[in-house]
Write a protein that binds this DNA or RNA. Sequence first.
DNA 1: GGAGTAAGTTCACGCAGCGAACAAATCTCC
DNA 2: GGAGATTTGTTCGCTGCGTGAACTTACTCC
Lengths: 380, 380
Amino acid sequence: MIGAAPAGQHTVRRHNLALVLGAVAAAGRSTRARVAEATGLTRATVSVLADQLLAAGLLDELDPDRGTPGRPGNPLRLNPGGPGGLGVEVNVDYLAACVVGLDGTVRAQQVLGFDVRAAAPRAALRRAARLAEKARAEAGVPVAGTVLALPGLVDLTGVLCRAPNLPSWDGIALAEMLGALLGTDVEAGNEANLAALAEAAATGLRDFVYVSGEVGVGGGVVRDGRLYTGVAGFAGELGHIVVDPDGPPCSCGGSGCLEQLAGLSALFRAAGVDDVDELVARAGEPRSRAALETAGRALGIALAATVNLLDVRDVVLGGVQARLARWLTGPLSAELERRIVSRELAPVRVHVSELGSYAAVRGAAGSVVSRVVADPLSVY
Amino acid sequence: MIGAAPAGQHTVRRHNLALVLGAVAAAGRSTRARVAEATGLTRATVSVLADQLLAAGLLDELDPDRGTPGRPGNPLRLNPGGPGGLGVEVNVDYLAACVVGLDGTVRAQQVLGFDVRAAAPRAALRRAARLAEKARAEAGVPVAGTVLALPGLVDLTGVLCRAPNLPSWDGIALAEMLGALLGTDVEAGNEANLAALAEAAATGLRDFVYVSGEVGVGGGVVRDGRLYTGVAGFAGELGHIVVDPDGPPCSCGGSGCLEQLAGLSALFRAAGVDDVDELVARAGEPRSRAALETAGRALGIALAATVNLLDVRDVVLGGVQARLARWLTGPLSAELERRIVSRELAPVRVHVSELGSYAAVRGAAGSVVSRVVADPLSVY
DNA sequence: GGAGTAAGTTCACGCAGCGAACAAATCTCC
DNA sequence: GGAGATTTGTTCGCTGCGTGAACTTACTCC
């Protein structure tokens, strides 16, 4: 019985604190009486729990709302000055750090172009740590946890096991290393997985598949508002779903992977362009058009497989796919329409991310906030 | 905050009852003192909980084990006469029913060849209900719940939404219908999903992907010992992962689906045989060999996609794939070796089911038992 | 048969949520 | 402008549940 702990009164308290905090978070602002109604707890209990959360600095009490008969309630909200989350991102060509407040607002964001490939891991992390300290100072709120977003397979202990675009970094315990520099515990995760969490927070979707291509193609699976990590933390690798077994060879050793048909370098090669801006500018030309069509179809095929396997109703395009969505969604949706077994029973919606390039840092920081909301006692 | 209920003392009791029952189930037989050690609860608490479970007929107390110094403990075990689960299966050409006891043993099993395609749903269910009653009588234990296994997409309310091999059955609320005939609540699920649960119980694996082909190709995803159902209950449709976008058209509307390359009819066509026995007999001949090779590779490609997406370390072959495993695993494993991104970090193991054709009924019955063990109060 | 040892039980305690009663703060209507 | 209506938030005794320590029970070993 691993993973199952005995329950006691403390467990109940823990659960109900989260319930109250979650109800306030969901409503944005809410009185004790309405929280009681929403959660099924008694007003008495909610009062006690709210007091505890106020004392801990997680909730904030506002002036009464007048206007209706009866005693006005005192609105509660998530304390904007309460403990937030610190997200740090080390990517191929930039570093980023960001603090998200308990209420979900971005309190600070720092980005620095940096050729990580050319630097030693320790040097890059030192720069990232400085960026993180800067963001932390700028934010002006306590930080309840730090999460590091990395481009590659990250295991649950925070080791970067395999990074196709940072080959010399394989096997390094980056979370531990950054933790030593910052003097706190640090967790690490895959950038696309964390970006998916940012998307979940931004859109309110609780079950979806997220795809995001930059150099490679990554992704994330969100189920019931939580990330599906898999056994070791490697889940979500949409980039290596096979789209055409006889297709071009892939760096993973296989062939015809999605990444080789809808990844950035494949797109550039097929369209004969050098960067995304050029591709957008020339999207009307036949060659670019054909390249985008092929990529869209490949994405559709891979996503259809994913939808059939996982039964999700929402697909979110992020990263470069979001910028190119205008040209991709047509062929993509056509493939989904054709190939999804349950299509008549419940349609699949394709969403386009609006978070831009820094979704991963946001998600990293936001995941800390989510953890605090889901378990308020974890801040102690 | 949907799905989040307030916690109270009753919640604690519920949780800890499950903890104790689970600890006994995991150990097979265990004394109160050892359960206390395993769960982290006090001996005092375990005593009280065990008494409650004994009174409910879920546990069974044996004679003391002598031989060691100190007072001998009274071994507890799952009560073999305790409430079991009833599984019913309606498939294309047979009906089956089975009762699994609380301790996991099969107490009764009934199978009846029956051409379901030629019968009206109500008539088929009446036969199935009679079979179920027979199994129930033979089992001699109370039944805590009934689950119906069906070949097709089954939603969470027990409606058979889409059954490719029973086209006229689409949209019928079969769980409700069988419930009326049996006079109890009935839940329904996809046969391959339920077979995956049977596999989980039989092998002890807690995270794996299960593939099982009969007429179509189905599957199931088990995560942390529980079935991954997806939003509506349609998850696990491995049969429509695209293996070759330019491949043969599929009944789903797509093309090159796994089912069209590794399903039974595809195999028969490619090998030029009429049934599985013939295929096994002629497996050495070049044409059959080639057909099996193609099917194995297709399975490998689809499973590689699944493993990359979900990060599981175990794959279980069931149904026809288990019978043909000898010829399939070679090419299958070769594709896995090539295509799995995390292959060096943690090897993927391919298992072959030993449950035979009736895994689905077993799983259906077993899922009830799992529910009882996971929440003992659910029997009231 | 006494010492040693371990299992199971009893009991007072504290914690947490509940429900009912109560106090507080506003609106409404005459 | 004041009385009643209405809704909020708090107080308080109650009950259920796990805890820890002490106690009883039932063996083995010397």
